[in-house]
Design a protein around this nucleic acid. Structure first.
Lengths: 172, 172
DNA sequence: ACGGTTGGTTCGATGAACGAACTCTTTGCG
DNA sequence: CGCAAAGAGTTCGTTCATCGAACCAACCGT
């Protein structure tokens, strides 16, 4: 996107938001983090993002307080959403819903369900059955009818994400 | 953003959505269209977007059925959101809300109000007073406490958008 | 000790965005 | 009518981010 990361200094808050998450790959990184991806190599595998770009984006998102680096096994680091980062969930959900509505000929690809209650989580983020506003951690992502079964060459992360799982739960 | 407009062919619908509206400037164009901007020169003035890029984006969005070209005064054309384009409103609202929450030290910059009912439209798109899901056309955008008063050099479009107005209502 | 995995960095080529200048048509005005 | 100014793009040379492939270093299991 060649996003210079700065638009004109407009008064609108959406401009500021886009300066943070409007660059190529950034929202996909956030989405994957919501789905439970935490490791550098898993992002690379699942997104197909150039490693240098991933490095730069992770650094930037940490600096902006969207992600934080947490120690993983050994001396590795993993990347985890902060509260501010989890606040982007409505954006991710809205975009996914729009994409599902207009670009999923085989039906929706992802359906989100309220854990326990089993009701579906609708657009505004509320449960269709119990009516409650469903927090991220109580949301289960399940494959919809339009989700193509993952082929082996898509990698194991894709395979893991094609099965029902709690959001934010580490994939590994 | 140098967005090649194609990510890897992932199964996720958000990827498809980002291929349409993920490029630099695109969501800002949609936002301005929601706010009532319709003319080429008004987009240029308000966004500060290079003219060649605007031309390319408008063409692309028309091709994707997000905008449509409608005849304006004289032989001019204007650009109007289609139903598919209006479907992006939750995305715009979610991004603006996130930006307002984290990058508006002086308080929110835009507040959306349910016309007639006067209740505020909250994050999920429902009215805080009457509880109804508020459609775009019944939403009034009002300046919040954090919105800086527009300086004259910002142009007249900025000035118009700093006053309360119905969404989708043409600015001119 | 050593081969593989993880987590990056480096580097050259490509291509999009930028912005200023230019063109062509339409509009406004006397 | 005649002229100036604005609207709606187009053209073009420069700059800068992205791409992708290769390279490197630390760590791990055996």
């Amino acid at each position: 996107m060649g996003l210079p990361r700065e638009y004109t200094n407009q008064a609108c808050s959406m401009v500021r938001a886009l300066e943070i998450v409007g660059e190529r790959w950034t929202l996909l990184i956030v989405r994957d983090a919501v789905f439970g991806v935490r490791r550098f190599s898993d992002f690379v595998e699942h997104l197909g993002i150039p490693r240098a770009v991933l490095t730069e984006r992770l650094e930037f998102l940490i600096g902006e307080g969207v992600l934080e680096r947490v120690p993983g096994p050994g001396k590795r680091s993993e990347y985890e959403l902060t509260a501010k980062g989890r606040g982007l969930w409505p954006v991710v959900r809205a975009l996914s819903a729009w994409g599902d509505e207009h670009y999923a000929p085989g039906g929706r690809r992802r359906v989100f369900v309220h854990a326990g209650c089993e009701g579906e989580v609708a657009q505004p983020g509320t449960c269709l059955r119990c009516g409650a506003e469903v927090p991220l951690a109580e949301t289960v992502m399940t494959p919809g009818p339009g989700l193509a079964p993952p082929s082996p060459e898509d990698g194991q992360v894709s395979a893991l994400l094609a099965r029902p799982r709690h959001l934010l739960q580490p994939v590994h």
